[in-house]
Structure formats: structure tokens, C-alpha cells
Design a protein around this nucleic acid. Structure first.
Length: 459
RNA sequence: GUGGGGGUAGCUCAGCUGGUUAGAGCAUCAGAUUGUGGUUCUGAGGGUCGUGGGUUCGAGCCCCAUUCUCCACCCCA
């Protein structure tokens, strides 16, 4: 039988110990900040019923769902007439009732509705789990990746938006990633669509103006033209999108433009209140900019929308989110407004790796290694090793009595700081030789003083 | 879903207009050194050149198909 090449599915990755240590550093940082703001952890299953996932992410999103084949003789239970060429879409719906989660927000909405009587509102939760998208992988895009979500649900106060910005700022400051945070408001976008006379083209318009950043305003306008937006409308749109100045200045200009739209006024008022809170919270490192060209695709957002980009690396957004007023509505719970953002751990990893932002010392696990000269000598070390571990110093004994060169090699590669040598001569004098692997210095210590000696070294 | 680049040793790659036995560096293992590493020196192992077909006296190189991968678009973390 031919051997098979070891491989993993497209867009997925294995993580080696160094990578895991670094990823955990990111997760730990994010988690610790979430906790200090009072958010509580939850987890949901990797798979959800397709009915809870479908229709929440728009047409594009539905296509990117991984579906799970039913068990058993699923083909027998299906109307045989739908099994025909070119009908795989309908067929897949008939033979799959589960799918892998596409994000953490929709499962969270389902969770909230399901446990509404047990939860205390406003409910603040965080959730760090992988999600799956049947996208075509490329730079910074994977088919399996982790999201770190924080959401508050059951409160429409804009204090929550301000708090999320503080969280974003704190996390990226701790990780050493310089970022720009763009904020916009879906209500303002919807006023824009109204204002230029195409309220029904809101989605097309937002998608087009979202690209301004990437392809330039002219190309975005060309796209709108292609979607059937009139020249007049585009002329009305242009000055809005090219608004410049401070955040307060932009808000002021918008207020003057919006005369007869309730949604528009509400959107502007929200932004004003948000910036007021943010200012009161004091100076933060993250640059926060009101950007009217920001438009997140997910169509469940209804208020503020956020997007965070790394300043020093060209990669998609590393964090994004917004307010959704009625995500729980489809599951039968009305009037539950929520806001949340999601941190893309994998992209943050890529950014930090490229900028060399991971602390050097992350990889050292074992602090002290004992060399092994044989059964008799190894026995001499065992109790000392246990003593060190009890003091919280990670220690290990090299398991085989191979030549010392090999044992030292191992210690080097593992970044072990101290090697304890206990051979015949040390045993005769009830001693240990302790070698510092960075300086190369070696000292002889009495058997009973080893703990104390090493504790002093690590204090 | 659309478009481009690429698969040669464990890793990073070289390999001329097709020509004999496919190379290098790093890594691995062994020895120089039977109780001292990260430096050095010597040697060894490791490849059906992604897979399948075709052209040719002859294919790593040319042609076709297929697969995987990278990049861009779409969309997004």
C-alpha cells in the first residue's frame, strides 16, 4: 500500500509549540482585558443548526458556510427528484441540517434567546473560539480562524460603544500594535442613501463606498454608476464622502446637511454622544476617526460600526464590529439591542510576527535540567527535582543516559537556563554542579543547598 | 465564484536554448572529544523533481489534464 502524504485541509493550519506560546500570549492578553471590564465567558458548539446560521450574513455569507452532511442513509430520505445535475445547492440543503459556525455573534444571539430567563441583563460576555468560512484562503485569510468577541446585549447606551473602544485601545496597547480605529454609523449611511434618492440601494451604496479606501473615490463612483446610480445622486454624494476635518467638525457639518431625516439626525446625535464619552474617558493611544466611507458588509448592523487596522502592516482589518438592534428578533426575542466587536487573533498574530512584537522569553518552559549519567546517578537527582517543582521551578531530568554533548544540545535548544550535573564525583561529596547555560559559569553546591541556590537565581 | 504565479532533500532554494550519475545552504545523524553545549573540522543518510498522460532517441525543463499552494478580485477577522 502506498504511503499517503501527510496533509491538512486547505486554509487550515497546525500550530507548533512556539506558535502556540505566542498565540496564547495574544489570547491571554485579550482575555485579561475582557475580564477587567467585567465580561463573562461563554462557549457555544462548533456546529449550529443550519437554520440558525442561514440568512444572517447575506447571500455571500450563506455561500461561505461549511455544511455538515447528515448521518445515516440521508439520500433515501430525500425527494429523489431534487437529485440531479446542477442542483447541488438545493440538494445540500436537503441532506445537511448542521453547519460550522461562521462567526460568534449569531450563535451568541441564539444563546441569549435560549437562556434569556437565566441571564442578567445587560449581559456582557466574551467568547474566544474558532470559526470556519469556506473562503478561498490568501494572505491573512484562513478557513479556520479564531475570533475573540466581546458583546454587551440588553443595553442601548452609547457608553457601551465607548467602553469597547477603551477595550480595543487597551488590548492593542498591551500587545504593542499601533492601530487606527474607524467608526461610522449605519443610520448615517442610511440617511446618505435616502438623501441621494436611492434608499433601496443602501447595500450597494455602502459596499461601493467601503472600497474608497482601497480603490480610490473615482473607482468607487464608477462602481455606483454601474449599479445604476444617477450622476446627480453621485454629485450629491461626493461632498459627503470627502468631508474632512476633526471628528467634531465632521459631525457639525453633517448636522447642517441633515435637515429632514429622523434616522440621520439620530445617527449624528449618537456619534456626538459617543465622542463626548470618549473624550471624558481621557486620552488614548488609538487614533479614533469618524469615517463616513466605512461600511461593514454584514447586514445586521444598525448603529455604530467599527473597524481597526494595524498602522504598520498591510493586512485586512484586525478587529471589527458594531451595534445590532434586532439580531435576537429572528429567534423570537424583541427589543434586545447589542454592541460588540471581534478581534481576529490570527491576523493579530501575523501583524505581531511581522513587526517582531513577541517577547523573547516566551518560549522557556523548563528552567532547570538535570543531566543523566545512568540509573544510579538519576536516582540521586529525583528527590531534588521534586523539591524544585514544589517550589514552582520547572525542572526535568534528561530521560536517557546518552553522552553529555547530546544532553547539553537538548538543553540549548529548549532554552533551558540551568543544567545540573550529578555524576560520580558529585555524589561522593553529596554535591551538585550547576551550570549557567548563558554565561557558561559552573558552581558546585552542596546537595541540601540546591533549592535555595536556584530560588535565589530565579528571584 | 473569477483571474495570475508556483510545486525539485525535513526547510529555503539553484538547475543554461530538453542531453549521461539532479546540486547548494540550513537541519538531521555519526566521528574528531568515553563528564561539559551554543564555535570549528570530517563524514553519512535523505529526492519515482506534486500526480497522471503526451511529444522526443532522450523530459526536472516542452504540451495537456489534474491536484495542492501562494497572490489578487469578491467578501471579510
Amino acid at each position: 500500500m502506498a504511503v499517503q502524504k501527510p496533509s491538512i485541509p486547505k486554509g487550515t493550519r497546525d500550530f507548533t509549540p512556539i506558535e502556540m506560546v505566542r498565540r496564547n500570549y495574544i489570547f491571554d492578553t485579550i482575555r485579561s482585558v475582557f475580564k477587567t471590564y467585567g465580561y463573562l465567558p461563554i462557549e457555544t458548539p462548533a456546529m449550529e443548526n443550519l437554520s440558525t446560521l442561514l440568512g444572517k450574513y447575506g447571500e455571500e455569507g450563506d455561500k461561505l458556510l461549511f455544511k455538515i452532511l447528515n448521518s445515516g442513509d440521508y439520500i433515501d430520505k430525500v425527494d429523489q427528484s431534487i437529485i440531479k445535475p446542477g442542483n447541488s445547492n438545493q440538494l445540500s440543503m436537503a441532506i445537511c441540517e448542521k453547519g460550522l459556525r461562521y462567526d460568534l455573534t449569531v450563535p451568541f444571539a441564539r444563546f441569549v434567546v435560549q437562556y434569556q430567563n437565566e441571564l442578567t441583563f445587560p449581559f456582557k460576555r466574551y467568547q474566544i473560539q474558532p470559526v470556519w468560512r469556506a473562503d478561498r484562503p490568501q494572505k491573512g485569510r484562513y478557513r479556520e480562524f479564531y475570533q475573540c468577541d466581546v458583546d454587551v446585549i440588553g443595553s442601548d447606551s452609547l457608553l457601551n460603544e465607548a467602553e469597547l473602544v477603551m477595550i480595543i485601545n487597551e488590548i492593542f496597547t498591551k500587545l504593542g500594535v499601533r492601530t487606527t480605529l474607524k467608526i461610522n454609523n449605519r443610520k448615517i449611511l442610511s440617511w446618505i442613501a435616502d438623501f441621494i434618492g436611492y434608499p433601496e440601494k443602501l447595500i450597494d451604496i455602502t459596499i461601493a463606498i467601503d472600497k474608497i479606501d482601497k480603490v480610490g473615490i473615482d473607482a468607487a463612483i464608477a462602481e455606483l454608476d454601474g449599479k445604476g446610480v444617477s450622476k446627480d445622486a453621485i454629485a450629491k454624494l461626493h461632498p459627503i464622502l470627502t468631508l474632512t476635518g476633526s471628528n467634531a467638525g465632521k459631525i457639525e457639518k453633517l448636522r447642517k446637511m441633515i435637515t429632514d431625516s429622523e434616522v440621520g439626525k439620530k445617527g449624528v446625535a449618537e456619534m456626538e454622544e459617543f465622542f463626548e464619552y470618549l473624550e471624558a474617558l481621557g486620552h488614548i493611544k488609538t487614533e479614533v476617526e469618524l469615517d463616513l466611507s466605512l461600511a461593514r458588509g454584514l447586514n445586521y448592523y444598525t448603529g455604530a460600526i467599527f473597524e481597526v487596522k494595524a498602522k504598520d502592516v498591510e493586512i485586512g482589518s484586525i478587529c471589527g464590529g458594531g451595534r445590532y438592534d434586532d439580531l435576537t428578533g429572528v429567534f423570537g426575542l424583541k427589543d434586545m439591542s447589542g454592541v460588540g466587536v471581534s478581534f481576529g487573533a490570527d491576523r493579530i498574530y501575523d501583524v505581531m510576527l511581522q513587526l517582531n512584537l513577541f517577547p523573547e522569553k516566551l518560549l522557556s518552559s523548563t528552567k532547570v535540567m538535570f543531566t543523566n549519567f545512568g540509573r544510579y546517578e538519576a536516582t540521586y537527582c529525583l528527590n531534588a527535582i521534586r523539591g524544585l517543582r514544589e517550589k514552582g521551578i520547572s525542572a526535568e531530568l534528561y530521560p536517557d543516559a546518552t553522552k553529555l554533548k547530546k544532553q547539553f544540545d537538548y538543553a540549548n535548544k529548549r532554552n533551558i537556563q540551568y543544567v545540573v550535573i550529578a555524576g560520580e564525583s558529585e555524589m561522593q561529596n553529596r554535591q551538585f554542579s550547576v551550570k549557567n547555560m548563558t554565561s557558561g559559569e559552573q558552581e558546585t553546591i552542596a546537595f541540601s543547598n540546591l533549592n535555595e541556590y536556584l530560588l535565589r537565581k530565579f528571584s
